[in-house]
């Protein structure tokens, strides 16, 4: 029998239809996300010149001065440390608070569970609305101060709005993380928890030694998402603290307006991106092939 082998097809020929289908999305993603990042990255290494003694303009160069400035000038250094530090602390609190709530939602059949779950999404979709609601709640006349006064925990109202505390409270409150962790917990078979109990583990031991480790991928994802939201938060400190706050995002904005220092703003942005990138790397490391066959 004579079987003629078809001529070997190139990679492009074999994947043409896939590429064609992906093309619109790929072009969109490249245009909207990749290009600005490339520009930002390039800008971060630009120098600048004082044009006609009127305006500073970026000057293409390979100049490391912006990064040197960011890590030596105490104002920038403080801002970086503050932003990352607050994000780390608030994300940890956020996740710790989310764990029991998410577990409860995953394991019990409460009436109106989806309503409860949607309410955790409200701060994401109605962000501005909820920020102002929180701002009101934290005013000296607001319900939080009223409660603290009634409980005699404080004697005079504390001004939380306008201070960084408002942002810390906001970031510590679990929202999307509850839903992410809930779905991770739902994916943990109750069988393992029952097995742990028959082996002599109390409810807490079962939770921390079986349920949480088995849901660790989802929890790590929730941590990453909360953390990057934390370091990247712009509007929240702006509204709750005011324009001259210590968050790096706001600092970046101030580099542009009024100083018009695009290279410095880009360098700070790159630093922020790299920090999230490092965290993302560790996140991917936790996503090693899981337990299931």
């Amino acid at each position: 029998m004579n079987i003629s082998t078809p001529p070997p097809r190139t990679w492009l020929a074999r994947n043409a239809s896939t590429l064609l289908l992906l093309a619109p999305l790929l072009i969109f993603m490249l245009g909207v996300f990749a290009m600005p990042m490339v520009f930002q990255f390039a800008f971060a290494f630009f120098d600048r010149v004082f044009y006609k003694n009127v305006i500073w303009i970026p000057k293409p160069a390979f100049y490391l001065g912006n990064f040197a400035e960011a890590f030596t000038n105490p104002t920038y250094l403080y801002s970086i440390a503050w932003t990352v530090g607050i994000a780390a602390v608030t994300t940890s609190i956020n996740i710790l608070l989310a764990l029991p709530v998410a577990y409860f939602l995953a394991r019990t059949k409460v009436w109106g569970r989806s309503l409860i779950e949607v309410s955790f999404l409200l701060p994401i979709f109605g962000e501005i609305f909820t920020i102002y609601a929180l701002a009101y709640a934290l005013t000296p006349q607001g319900p939080l101060n009223w409660l603290l006064l009634k409980l005699h925990l404080i004697s005079t109202p504390i001004a939380l709005v306008g201070s960084s505390w408002a942002v810390i409270i906001w970031m510590s409150l679990p929202t999307l993380s509850v839903l992410l962790i809930r779905s991770a917990f739902s994916g943990v078979d109750v069988l393992y928890e029952e097995a742990a109990q028959t082996m002599g583990a109390s409810a807490l031991q079962t939770f921390f030694k079986v349920t949480v480790p088995l849901a660790k991928n989802g929890i790590a994802g929730a941590f990453l998402l909360s953390f990057s939201g934390g370091v990247g938060a712009y509007t929240i400190p702006l509204i709750l603290v005011g324009p001259y706050n210590d968050w790096l995002t706001n600092k970046i904005q101030r580099e542009v307006d009024p100083y018009f220092n695009f290279p410095m703003a880009s360098a700070l942005g790159v630093i922020l991106t790299v920090i999230c990138g490092i965290l993302f790397y560790f996140y991917l490391r936790t996503q090693e092939p899981g337990g299931e066959r």
């Binding site: 069988l191 393992y192 029952e194 097995a195 742990a196 028959t198 082996m199 002599g200 079986v210 480790p213 088995l214 660790k216 899981g290 337990g291 299931e292």
Partner: peptide, 14 residues
């Protein structure tokens, strides 16, 4: 103080 073997293998995958 008991031991329990389930229908599905309940060996901890982690």
């Amino acid at each position: 103080n008991l031991g329990f073997v389930f229908q599905r293998p309940a060996m901890f995958p982690h």
